[in-house]
């Protein structure tokens, strides 16, 4: 599997799509639609050890290493958060641990979401990205650098 867009390109693409929408009601509707596009989450991984801490809603994130790249499965019991995790997964999907670790730290700001999610901390966008980096660190031990 190969990803054609860089993390920066994928982030920019989503940010532009959101920015083009007239208001935040529309943006959150679009975010929720992205959540609906997530592949069904494997029930066997709906376990507490795959829950992300620091979110008001429950967010499950399960990584697996496929040919040196990390493939994520994700889900949430809240629609907007599910959309946010879908965005994060779309940006980070099927990349090498090294690519993920080299990604900019201000993706929420680049997406234009940091300022607007008044519940940034609760909505857990930064917790999701942090967890993805932690998985990348753990999985990088298993891949040749």
């Amino acid at each position: 599997m190969s990803t054609t867009k860089t993390i920066a390109e994928a982030t920019y693409e989503i940010a532009s799509m959101l920015e083009a929408l007239p208001d935040w009601e529309e943006r959150f509707s679009a975010i929720m639609s992205m959540g609906k596009g997530l592949a069904p989450y494997p029930e066997e991984f709906r376990r507490d050890d795959f829950l992300i801490k620091g979110c008001q809603a429950q967010v499950w994130l399960f990584p697996r290493l496929v040919d040196g790249r990390i493939h994520f499965e994700a889900d949430s019991d809240a629609l907007i958060v599910k959309g946010l995790v879908a965005i994060v997964v779309q940006i980070m999907q099927d990349r090498t641990p090294q690519e993920i670790l080299a990604a900019p730290k201000d993706i929420p700001e680049q997406l234009g979401l940091a300022q607007h999610l008044s519940q940034n901390r609760a909505s857990g966008l930064s917790s999701m990205l942090k967890q993805i980096r932690l998985y990348a660190v753990a999985l990088s031990m298993r891949t040749p650098s």
Binding site: W24, E25, A57, A78, I80, V81, Q119
Partner: peptide
């Protein structure tokens, strides 16, 4: 409906 979705969407109004 998750309460958080209600809160975030009410905030947009």
């Amino acid at each position: 409906v998750h309460p958080q979705d209600v809160g975030i969407m009410l905030d947009t109004h």
